[in-house]
């Protein structure tokens, strides 16, 4: 393969995987903006969304193969339901685990979301065992060839769904009252409450929304990469790195962070070492954190707050 087409191939792959990171990162940012919490279970919602979609559309053995689920719903309906169910699970997670701990410290909240990560992973293991599952490709047909590089139709789906979702979210945040209320919480929680916005309901909404976004991310990659109970861990980690790259509080930043991370990862794996593919995200993370810190920490916002201003 010519070098140019090889580079193009890396870019295609990078954008595809980067789109997923971007969606997971977006989930992180939505929750973090509204509640200040980093949800380490974010990637598990992607895993749940995908496995629920598989269960609804295909014959699936569940609970250690004790039962066989045979819903056999059409794929679009199954996917829509899976996204809704996962969104509801996000809301339930908030109600059961986050809301009762409303004034916990950051360390406690980290531990709670880690607990949720364990619980969801364990529940998935009990339900679907350790088997990998995948969905059928959304559309049939051969891959496209552009300048010698190959772009599968599922890649197009991933990129397309990401773009569509971003547009929808943009409209939601900019054009609807609910979206504006969420943004108000992100900008200033106290002021938002004084304006009569129900912070608790907004937090609930942010968890449901993030879980649903996560589910969509999980579903669109499952035809290409199979999904199993423990896939959530790395999706969480990569998504979080992408969110940090993007500044942790901006949706645009999260998307750019995701794409940059995806492309760096595919290039790194392709050109340097595939064994260290998963390390790339963290090397990038250290780099970004320390560069930002050297400039920011002395005058960081938290420091200013802590100094009593």
């Amino acid at each position: 393969m010519a070098l140019e087409s090889q580079i193009l191939q890396f870019i295609f792959a990078g954008i595809t995987v980067g789109s997923i990171y971007a969606l997971i990162a977006l989930g992180f940012v939505v929750i973090h903006n509204v509640t200040g919490i980093v949800n380490f279970a974010q990637g598990d919602f992607a895993m749940l969304g995908a496995l629920i979609a598989v269960t609804l559309t295909e014959k699936t053995p569940i609970f250690n193969r004790v039962f066989i689920a045979e819903f056999n719903l059409p794929l679009p309906l199954g996917i829509a339901l899976a996204v809704l169910i996962t969104g509801a699970l996000g809301a339930i997670f908030y109600l059961l685990a986050i809301r009762p701990a409303h004034n916990a410290s950051i360390v406690s909240l980290i531990i709670i979301t880690i607990g949720a990560h364990f619980a969801l992973q364990g529940a998935a293991l009990i339900t679907w065992a350790a088997d990998p599952y995948s969905l059928p490709r959304f559309t049939t047909g051969g891959p496209l060839e552009i300048m010698g590089a190959i772009l599968t139709r599922q890649n197009l789906w991933v990129i397309g769904v990401t773009i569509a979702l971003l547009l929808l979210l943009y409209l939601f945040f900019e054009r609807t009252i609910l979206g504006k209320a969420l943004r108000a919480c992100a900008i200033n929680r106290t002021a938002a409450r004084l304006m009569g916005i129900n912070i608790d309901r907004m937090a609930l909404l942010s968890f449901a929304l993030s879980a649903a976004i996560g589910a969509i991310a999980g579903i669109v990659i499952t035809p290409a990469n199979s999904m199993s109970y423990d896939s959530g861990t790395f999706l969480s980690l990569k998504g979080f790195v992408a969110a940090i790259l993007g500044g942790m509080n901006s949706a645009t930043g999260a998307v750019i962070g995701g794409l940059v991370l995806g492309i760096l990862e595919t290039f790194g794996a392709g050109m340097i070492s595939s064994g260290y593919k998963d390390a790339i995200a963290f090397i990038v993370l250290f780099f970004v954190l320390f560069i930002r810190m050297s400039g920011i920490i002395k005058l960081g916002k938290s420091q200013v707050e802590e100094a009593g201003l």
């Binding site: 193969r65 880690i114 607990g115 949720a116 619980a119 364990g122 009990i126």
Partner: peptide, 22 residues
């Protein structure tokens, strides 16, 4: 759970952890 395998105990850890923290 008949035929249970793997680290299924993590679900209990997760739940206990959340309860303790709350």
């Amino acid at each position: 759970l008949r035929g249970a395998s793997g680290e299924q105990e993590i679900i209990a850890f997760g739940v206990i952890l959340i309860l303790v923290m709350i």
